[in-house]
Design a protein around this nucleic acid. Structure first.
Length: 410
RNA sequence: GCGGGUGUGGCCGAGCGGUCAAUGGCAGCAGACUGUAAAUCUGCCGGGCAAUGCCCUACGGUGGUUCAAAUCCAUCCGCCCGCACCA
């Protein structure tokens, strides 16, 4: 289908890059060759939670792998687990999640689209919902399905085994989760399923079930869970150590610059398409002093920001970072805030609150006292200071290191 | 159904009836330092007030005891845990 497809060796290199588990690589190669011969795309399935539409760089690791498949002419299925979401992947905590309404699921799907199409090609992406087939199964079908999976199999999963050993409760419906996910692969006739390393078990159940039902078993590929900005915990929104796919260019750039030197290599590997050999070369150049780590990090931030936005946005974000964070200067573009004029001078405290630079008067006062407020470049510490608020007067205000506003009265 | 426990500020979590806007940790904010929004150190961290103080709101809800309650009592609600019941 795609002409001029790279040699199989190169295809494999691209697809295997960054993967942790691949079951099995030789099957992948065989399948790729078969697809090529039969001029059909492979179906690559990846499941996503229906309730968490805020994607971050960690999710992007998998999405990027989906893109690799697309680049080779294959078809990816972005599967929203609206049915399995009722169960909730029993990875420990809250087992059952509130069921989303049809409208919520649809709305979340739209949010997903907006985000994933920053990386994926919409023409080669199918968005599907597993309630479509799982919701249609009769109880009889469920019984036939679950008959294919044994308890011993389920107990191979670490958290089930641990919980059982610890005498903790395991609800029966939790056992259904891997089975349901496995059935997704059957329903989609998936050739490949991708997921995080934490998904390995579920993906393998899918592979197994397909085999039992007489389908060619899917190839399973897992990708590492990306460490968050702190370099310790995995990236997650609740830990606040994340870079959202939808972060504004400046924010994205800045967050990436805050990554530690050590962690930067991880990001180079998992969040860019730079070939492993090139990453190694960069690493070596930094190690022997040829390249400054900061420069390499700038390049990283530029690359990733450009990927989610575009080159010019990345360049602007970089310029912003250099002026605001490196040189500590006022950025070129400062948001203007227009406030109603007053013949009398207004207390700075009030103005900061009106301009949304501080959430409350008390907070504004604190900021002043701590030296966190500059007006026209001068630090103002007096909590009783006032400001000319007559129509037409304007003031450049800075709060903290990086929040600016041009306040104009009219 | 019986018995026990628990419910505190964005989160976790302390809290002799007064001195509690409430210890501590996390998160957040500011300052210093730095190649960086990292690390580290320091300070702040409910709100209102021309204010070294006064006032308001807050410790699951509602009543009550008391000069005084996050702290005691009653009751209701939520959560957790034992036990029992289960045609």
């Amino acid at each position: 289908m795609v002409e001029g497809r790279p040699a199989i060796r190169e295809q494999m290199d691209l697809l295997l890059k960054g993967c942790v588990d691949v079951v099995r690589p030789e099957d992948l190669e065989t399948r790729l060759l078969a697809a090529q011969r039969e001029k059909r795309p492979l179906t690559v399935k990846v499941g996503f939670d229906p309730s968490a539409p805020d994607l971050h760089l960690g999710h992007a690791v998998v999405i990027r792998k989906m893109r690799h498949f697309q680049q080779l002419g294959h078809r990816v299925v972005f599967l929203i687990g609206d049915f399995t979401g009722m169960i909730g992947d029993p990875t420990g905590k809250k087992a059952t999640r509130p069921q989303l309404t049809r409208e919520q699921v649809a709305a979340n799907a739209e949010t997903y689209k907006r985000q994933i199409f920053k990386l994926l090609d919409p023409r080669a992406t199918v968005i599907d919902f597993n309630a479509r087939w799982l919701g249609a199964l009769t109880s009889e079908e469920w019984i036939r399905l679950t008959a294919r999976v044994t308890l011993a199999q389920m107990l191979e999963r670490d958290d089930f085994a641990k919980r059982l050993a610890a005498g903790e409760a395991i609800s029966l419906h939790e056992l259904l989760y891997p089975v349901a996910q496995a059935y997704d692969s059957v329903a989609l006739k998936a050739d490949v399923e991708l997921g995080g390393t934490d998904q390995l078990f579920n993906l393998l159940v899918g592979r197994d079930l397909m085999g039992k039902l007489g389908l060619p078993p899917q190839i399973v590929m897992t990708l590492p869970l990306l460490e968050g900005l702190d370099g310790v915990e995995k990236m997650s929104k609740s830990l606040g150590n994340y870079v959202a796919v939808e972060d504004a260019p400046e924010e994205m750039f800045g967050k990436l610059m805050s990554v530690s030197d050590a962690l930067m290599w991880r990001y180079w590997t998992l969040c860019t398409d730079l070939a492993p050999a090139q990453v190694e070369a960069l690493k070596k150049a930094v190690a022997n002093g040829e390249r400054h780590p900061m420069d390499v990090k700038f390049e990283l931030a530029r690359t990733i920001t450009a990927d989610f936005h575009d080159a010019s946005a990345a360049a602007a974000a970089e310029a912003h970072f250099r002026t605001v964070h490196q040189k500590r200067e006022v950025p070129d573009e400062v948001a203007e805030v227009v406030l109603p004029a007053s013949p009398e001078p207004l207390p700075v405290v009030k103005v900061l609150v009106m301009a949304a630079l501080a959430p409350s008067n008390a907070e504004a006062r604190r900021l002043l006292q701590q030296g966190g407020v500059k007006l026209a470049g001068e630090t103002v510490r007096d909590p009783f200071a006032t400001l000319d608020a007559r129509a037409g007067s304007a003031h450049l205000a800075q709060v903290g290191k990086r929040r600016f506003a041009r306040i104009r009265f009219s």
